[in-house]
Design a protein around this nucleic acid. Sequence first.
DNA 1: CCTACCGATCGGTAGG
DNA 2: CCTACCGATCGGTAGG
Lengths: 199, 199
Amino acid sequence: MGERKSADRKDQIAKVASEYFHEKGYMAVSMRDLAKEVGIEAASFYNHFDSKASILKEICFRMADEFFTGLNEALSEHNSPSEQLKAIIRKHIEVVLKNFSASAVFFREWRHLSEPWLQQFLELRRRYEEQVRQVLNRGMASGAFRKADQHVMVYALFSLINGLHEWPDVQRHFSAAEIADRIASLFLEGISNASAQKS
Amino acid sequence: MGERKSADRKDQIAKVASEYFHEKGYMAVSMRDLAKEVGIEAASFYNHFDSKASILKEICFRMADEFFTGLNEALSEHNSPSEQLKAIIRKHIEVVLKNFSASAVFFREWRHLSEPWLQQFLELRRRYEEQVRQVLNRGMASGAFRKADQHVMVYALFSLINGLHEWPDVQRHFSAAEIADRIASLFLEGISNASAQKS
DNA sequence: CCTACCGATCGGTAGG
DNA sequence: CCTACCGATCGGTAGG
């Protein structure tokens, strides 16, 4: 099957590109760099992708898909805001660690997306953010969460769960479940000792 | 004084470069882009900097200096681990917001530093990290902080305070003091309501 | 600080 | 999937 073979090659290119874009950054990687690693000539890429830009697009939108799948599962499998929040954190971190290079590219290199993909990408991020915000708002309304500025709350959460690829050796030291538990616990309860908390 | 004029021009270049590198990324900005904005020819840069790489070096190491100054002030002005921690967060966020573009370049573009600057930069980050880790360890030892994995604790903290430039419109919405207070409170106490905390 | 220029490399195309 | 090639642009230098 020619199509099957072609899809394999396309996946291989996407995988190699994820690793190179992660390591060196999108702009610092040339088609010839990728070609060498894949074992073909640079010109042959254009049988699989329209352009260098479309490789980046593929990586970013695949990851967006993964994140949304995780989010939807987290929301449908739980009801209370705090259970939903923990599940969101768990699913999100699983997706990050299972696709470490691609997710790093997703978080770091999306700025180099060409139009109209850039606008579409930003719209997806807004939608994801909005769904998480609603969980936090429901938690504040129900009294499960401390009342706080929702801006700070939601972006602090994103900083925590999107900053993982900057952690040195994160993949060697921890499983997804461990990190998720500890980050969820930190976000919910902080690092202060309860007995020492009221000064 | 020729030297005074030259230093002004050098600062102007560094400032313009910070903004461009922040907006487009180091690799996506050409010397000719910068030249146009500064109002000189590309070749004239080499009277002020040895290379494109040395502009990035200048930005990153200037920021490293700022962060260390803030850290040292925080440590010397306070004694208890939790007061030191709050001061570290406050100083760090002040530095980020006061040098928004340059700090974004510091956090995002350091990978493009050339040797030996890259190694030296990583060494500085290790030293900063180590000092923060010691504050957290002292706080755990004294009972001020909950006992937790120090890796998770320190990198979660860095994610929180280094992820600020990804927050949309952070500069428009908040003052440094507001953000610092809220992030410190979140990191120390979490978002759970104390009354709902023990399930 | 400018003009004039260098070799290298870029993303991409034509044609097979 | 390859060979052969394109125009554009890159960081940087020589010489004034």
